[in-house]
Amino acid sequence: MPNSGVEVLFEGSNFERLLGGLLVTIEIAFISIMIGTILGVVMGLLRTVPTRSLRLLLRLYLEAFRIIPILVWLYVVHFSFSPLLHIDISGETTAILVFSLWGAAEIGDIVRGALESMPKHQAESGKALGLSKGQLYRYVLIPQAVRRMLPGAINLATRMVKTTSLVVLIGVIDVVKVGQQIIELGVIKAPNASFWVYGLIFILYFLVCYPLSVLSRKYERRWQS
């Protein structure tokens, strides 16, 4: 049993370094969700326009992310930018670029779903009360749309945080990479470190994602009826 080894987590600044790595991960997820949401709202609105070709194009864009794994897109951007397009971008930028585009596609789909499921009579009964168009959106339509979208959006955020673990594979110094460094440095002193380090990273991810899942489920239940 690795009775020796657990100390490695608290040696020097190891624990702080791991948390720092986790922060890089969360930062990438956070920025991507922000950009993705802005782009996604626009995309969602565009997916309800009457122009068929535009709707089809945006649908294909979404399917590209649904069919091809995110890691493949990370590789495509990571390996093709500098040799083919002669643009040097860091792993972080690559990750934010891919995650934002992915987020835009998914948020767009959530926005479209919310808009399409909005019952017509809600708008009509709002109008019947004498609300102006602005008031109609402000008090009736947008609050309802947000309720419909929130569980899906939080769910996407959880998925995105989990998927950010892949950034280590394109050279970002994230929590997994920091973990690997700690394991390599301690290979003689703490040969069992990998058990504890990966165990801790596992728990850290859980601590970030679990509250998000609970939140998403809470909203889902509250607004289901």
Binding site: V168, V176, F206, C209, Y210
Partner: peptide, 10 residues
């Protein structure tokens, strides 16, 4: 609530 990559590494 945990990534597959971390599960695999563990």
């Amino acid at each position: 609530n945990t990534p597959l990559l971390v599960q695999l590494f563990f």
